[in-house]
Write a protein that binds this DNA or RNA. Structure first.
Lengths: 234, 234
DNA sequence: CGTGGACTTGACCAAGGTCAAGAACTGTGG
DNA sequence: CCACAGTTCTTGACCTTGGTCAAGTCCACG
């Protein structure tokens, strides 16, 4: 059906789900017909299997990306080779777009954390478009703004909250808002969640078991909360 | 000479130093004559003494700011009232500009950390300008991009490096690049440096005393480094 | 049924937050 | 010039948090 290698598959066809995700990104959602067409022509679709490098720190930044399906880990290494996740990108997230005007080299490594489909935008093409089309410039601003806010929240979270608090936070953000019982399903491995929250996998496990006494039950990827209101008190 | 109260002084006059700082911000540095005039007319100058609130978390965001002289602390509170600094803004830094398109309420508290002069930009006015003038939109993009990169670096730093490493990093960033001895002077209290690095003041002290065995001497605000190259190995 | 990967648990340890006491520095008025 | 008060900074003691390593469990899948 599609041409594939075991490493990568690049084509221009989008399936419906991926297309819907792409159209909802702050990057494209507000664009008029003409701008949208021009953006789409600066874009290509890339599919990668799990644990493939998308780019490496220090490489020339000639594209930025939007996750359509799957997950991407952005991380850096310290001197001893220990990895630390900076950000986990979910479907709809854009990454490396800050290099449109912020520098010419990638600042961190990017790697798939599942089988993943990406929209790849040519950096120079979008730079040019942003200068010509007002609504594209505005879309870039919106995307950067949102991204900056979540990154600052991440700093605040790291400096202000303990592991169980961060996990409770994460759960509450995707619970129905009422105070009663709730059940959610993690969309990815716990490994990734640990990275998102800036924790080692073991610390995440321990945080879950701390939360057990507040009525949180974890089985596989399913998290059940007895009382959402009680969890909010943590 | 100038009209002042003990709290605040708002006027349209800029002294030369403040004007020079303002013109070098990514926000204004690339603007052409007309755009520059329009931006300046959306701006006013505000002077505050030490420890005055600029805005509070949750307030309506009707302006963003650029530090001209002095320092500003952005911070959040946790449930028990403990403060954590998210960012320390130095002369030339812009803050809350992510709310141009990222939301309508301030997400954190902002407070002066010294006697401080600020450029205050009316949010709605700049929003309108960014839609009309291409170079203003571009300036916004540049500012947001740079800001996002430093914030991501901050996350990486927090997650990857120990206290002495972060302090060494800070020192090295403002040392002449050669390998020999060097001496720098902190532009502010150690309290603020601790906040920038995400440390308690005591942890900063201890980091300095750890670095003593790598040839770093601290007396008051003066930091002397015996061998810059050796410090780089940390 | 067996293998490998994901997850959990325990033991240990290092980093850094907190609290309290003391030292060093700054500015004040005598 | 000195005494004093108020900060800021440093140091020590203690303790919590969470990273690391190793072992063991659980689970999916061939």
């Amino acid at each position: 059906m599609e041409e594939t290698t075991d490493m990568m598959n690049s084509n221009l066809k989008l399936n419906n789900r991926d297309r819907a995700v792409l159209m909802k990104t702050p990057f494209l959602t507000s664009l008029s017909g003409n701008s949208l067409v021009r953006m789409m022509s600066a874009m290509s679709v890339v599919s990668l299997t799990n644990r493939k490098s998308i780019f490496r720190e220090g490489e020339n930044a000639d594209a930025f990306f939007c996750v359509l399906s799957g997950y991407v880990r952005l991380y850096q290494l310290n001197r001893d080779g220990r990895e630390a996740d900076i950000r986990i990108c979910s479907p709809g997230d854009t990454f490396a777009e800050c290099l449109l005007y912020g520098g010419t080299k990638y600042r961190y490594h990017a790697q798939t954390a599942e089988a993943t489909t990406l929209a790849r935008f040519d950096m120079q093409a979008v730079r040019d478009l942003a200068e010509q089309e007002r609504d594209i410039a505005k879309a870039v601003i919106t995307s950067l703004s949102k991204h900056l806010i979540t990154t600052m929240d991440c700093v605040a979270n790291d400096r202000l909250h303990t592991a169980p608090q961060r996990v409770a936070d994460y759960i509450l953000k995707r619970c129905p808002v009422d105070g009663g019982p709730a059940s959610i399903r993690l969309p990815f491995q716990k490994n990734l969640l640990a990275g998102m929250l800036g924790l080692a996998p073991e610390a995440l496990s321990r945080a879950f078991s701390t939360l057990r006494r507040t009525g949180v039950t974890v089985r596989g990827r399913v998290i059940q909360v007895v009382d959402v209101q009680a969890l909010r008190e943590i």
